[in-house]
Simulated scan of single mutants.
Amino acid sequence: MNQKIGQSHVFVFDHVECNYGGAYSNISGIFTAPKSGIFAFLWTIMAEGTNDGTGQNYGEVDTELVVNSEVRRRAHADTEVLYDDGQATGFVIVHLNQGDLVFIRSQSVPQGNLQVNYRGGWTFSGWQIA
């Protein structure tokens, strides 16, 4: 990602492996519950420390899974070494009503690069379990 990302930025996962029922929009980054039930969500994030000339621009990103306007869980990836990668995964099980909106957003302004490479990257998965 080569753009500046601010606080409360909704992340869009534009590469979709499967989207049975079309509940996830790779335009808005929002999952809309197709019916009421118990859902599981899993997301992975990755940050890379880069050299910005100050030697202090390490990779760090705070994310939160939001249901409608309520934060349900957070995931934090952080590097404290230049050119290091930091990765984290969040997982939550929630009850959703039909039409509820679920998305991943930044909790604060990220540092460094938000990375996708051969070591890892960003993923978002959601599925109904009951």
Rank of each mutant, 00 (worst) to 15 (best):
Q3F: 07
Q3V: 09
K4P: 01
I5M: 07
H9T: 15
H9E: 14
F11D: 11
F11P: 03
F11W: 14
D14Y: 00
V16E: 00
V16G: 01
E17S: 06
N19D: 09
Y20G: 00
A23P: 11
A23N: 10
Y24V: 05
Y24L: 02
Y24N: 03
S25G: 03
N26E: 12
N26M: 04
I27S: 13
S28K: 04
S28T: 15
I30D: 00
F31V: 08
A33G: 12
A33D: 11
P34N: 11
K35F: 09
K35D: 14
G37I: 01
F39W: 15
A40S: 14
A40D: 14
F41S: 10
L42A: 00
T44W: 04
T44L: 01
T44G: 06
I45F: 08
A47W: 01
A47R: 03
E48Y: 15
G49F: 06
N51F: 01
N51V: 04
T54P: 07
T54W: 08
T54N: 07
G55N: 09
Q56V: 11
Q56T: 15
Q56Y: 14
N57W: 01
G59L: 05
E60G: 13
L65C: 10
N68C: 06
S69R: 12
S69T: 15
S69L: 10
E70Y: 15
R72M: 13
R74T: 15
R74G: 11
A77V: 07
A77S: 12
D78C: 09
V81K: 15
V81L: 13
L82M: 15
Y83R: 11
Y83C: 09
Y83M: 12
D84L: 06
G86M: 02
G86F: 04
Q87K: 14
Q87H: 09
A88P: 02
A88W: 07
A88V: 03
T89F: 10
G90V: 05
G90I: 03
G90T: 03
G90K: 01
F91S: 09
V92R: 08
V94W: 01
L96H: 10
L96K: 05
L96W: 10
N97Y: 12
Q98V: 13
Q98S: 14
I104F: 07
R105S: 08
R105I: 05
S106R: 00
Q107F: 06
S108F: 03
S108D: 10
V109Y: 06
V109W: 02
V109P: 01
V109M: 04
P110Q: 03
Q111H: 08
Q111L: 05
Q111A: 06
Q111N: 11
G112I: 03
N117L: 03
Y118M: 09
R119V: 08
R119P: 06
G121F: 02
W122A: 00
T123I: 07
F124W: 13
S125Y: 10
S125L: 08
G126P: 13
